[in-house]
Write a protein that binds this DNA or RNA. Structure first.
Lengths: 333, 333
DNA sequence: CTGAAAGCGCTTACAG
DNA sequence: CTGAAAGCGCTTACAG
């Protein structure tokens, strides 16, 4: 139905090689020939067929994205960043979202078969073998919110530093002593890093987490509510609850309100991430900001930069800074 | 680097035609031959190269998605629905997000060139010409949250009915008389439908919107705040403010809190959509639920069903029901 | 500066 | 049930 490169060539009175040359802007073409071909292209509304080109060049002008399928605005922000970088480069985005936890995975195969020019893998367990295979083939692959050792490029945020700053604030500005922690899913490293920061900061002040004051959540909607109820079942309540993300902190808020407990007067709550929700709940959450959109944008940009220059990718480890955001849920005015 | 169909054929001692047959499960193949080929495929870890297949068959096993690039959890829910339907069908998802308002668009071209097997277009102005061209080519295309006349299949929700039920509640249960409306972006039909429902319901009760009581927002974060301030600048305040979505309603809440006004005592607020945010703000928003995820899921499923059966798509107009969700922001306990 | 030809890795009538 | 061959629409050395 549509015009092919043969149609263009015939009408312009040249060979398809020449059409291909003006299409790709490589090699020299006589200005008049070029003009003639371009006119015909416009006239026929011709456009290259992507798979034919991909087959010949092994490049698809698509960026692949692997991301957990969970319904979390946090991941949406990453997607937006990846997307913006991708369209800015004139690429298309091919998405495969995955159940968050799924043992060994062959999720990268579809991307191999489709010749994606780059791949961004977000917070997903992928087989090291597959990652290295892609990297070895020269497919620029970058990790976001996870690392796989120094040989694989990764974009993460300073979870430890952010959590540390948050806890220091709670210790020095508010003099809280009894802390509790609502953990995120256990198979991601960030919750563990944030917990470690909490423990270290407490230790420096001669404190420790009381037994039973670390409860398990999963980062998702609802789990913070249940975790908070577990905490309220303890003999001695904490002064302050540090939830591993804002979603769980917000759900904890809901649990406390139901029990007619006041935040921060009875129990203070803090979160992590600084997603939009954090500033809409009451009291607004004190939390740690991380540059979520930028994480996605920079990771994708890096992969695309490499793809477009055909250079091998450097296994750079990029750690974005985080920043304490003080609102009211910690007890500040 | 990887094995091709030739490698498999040679090692199995058959022609590539036969390999292709076992790969695609069509035509009869002798069981022993089939077994031998399958063994070799496994042995070589062979996988079909997608673009080669696409070039030969004109089918890509990709579903295209065009969606506004705005940062709105509402759209993320749709994406999730589309995504789940897509992976359930074994397809990949190719995303092109677009600035929300961009005049006539050639945004569908990339999808034509890549032979997507179906296309879901969400709340985006696309040129009617391009839509019909794709439809004419047999590419199943479905519209979500927009319609382009009866010839193009569309998935929408009952904005009018939902808004109507909401306003009836406010009129009969609460006896509010002075209404105000914060409109969504003017280039989408849903805000206008909701406003029309409001006007009709008021008229039936012998009421009307006072002058200046319709203010313009854009659905996005921040605009509800500004709109609420405009309303507070009026001589006579409304009893109740109907914001065209929950995001703007939540921002209006923030504006009122800053002025130390109480919701719902001083001014009641209601929203639309029933996004997660609605139940986290204080007071929780009375709103209208719409099945956002389902909208994306069903639209994508319909397109894929057609794609897989190679039948022409029926231009069905599907309208999902909406449902009043009563929480506290309207004045209910 | 330009063209003829081979090749990318598949599928699919057409014969047999 | 199976194979040889043409074709899908491009790109890219290789000659000239």
């Amino acid at each position: 139905v549509s015009a092919t490169i043969f149609d263009v060539a015939k009408l312009a009175g040249v060979s398809i090689s020449t059409v291909s040359r003006v299409l790709n802007g490589r090699d020299r073409v006589h200005p008049q020939t070029r003009q003639r071909v371009q006119d015909v292209i416009r006239q026929l509304d011709y456009e290259q067929t992507a798979p034919a080109r991909t087959l010949a060049t092994r490049r698809s002008e698509m960026l692949g994205l692997v991301i957990p399928r969970v319904n979390d605005p946090y991941f949406y922000e990453i997607v937006r960043g990846v997307e913006d970088a991708t369209s800015a480069a004139g690429y298309s985005l091919l998405i495969a979202s995955q159940p968050r936890h799924q043992g060994t995975s062959r999720n990268l195969k579809p991307f191999r078969r489709r010749f994606v020019d780059g791949l961004v893998v977000v917070a997903i367990d992928v087989a090291a073998e597959e990652v290295h295979e892609l990297l070895d083939r020269g497919v620029p692959l970058v990790l976001v919110q996870m690392t796989m050792g120094l040989e694989v490029p990764a974009y993460t945020v300073d979870n430890y530093g952010g959590a540390r700053a948050l806890v220091e604030h709670l210790l020095t500005e508010h003099a809280y002593r009894r802390f509790a922690y609502i953990a995120g899913s256990h198979y991601t490293p960030d919750s563990a890093q944030r917990l470690r920061a909490l423990r270290d900061a407490l230790a420096e002040h001669g404190l420790a987490l009381p037994p039973g004051h670390v409860v398990q959540g999963d980062y998702l909607r609802g789990s913070g509510y249940k975790a908070m109820l577990d905490l309220l079942a303890l003999n001695e309540w904490p002064d302050v609850v540090f939830a591993a993300n804002d979603q769980m902190a917000s759900d904890a808020l809901l649990a406390l309100r139901e029990r007619n407990l006041r935040v921060p007067e009875d129990i203070a709550i803090v979160g992590f991430d600084d997603v939009h929700l954090a500033s809409y709940v009451t009291p607004a959450l004190t939390t740690v900001h991380q540059p979520i959109y930028e994480l996605g944008f920079e990771a994708a940009s890096a992969a695309l930069r490499v793809a477009q220059q055909e250079k091998p990718i450097e296994p750079t480890q990029t750690v974005f800074p985080t920043r304490l955001v003080v609102r009211q849920s910690c007890g500040c005015a």
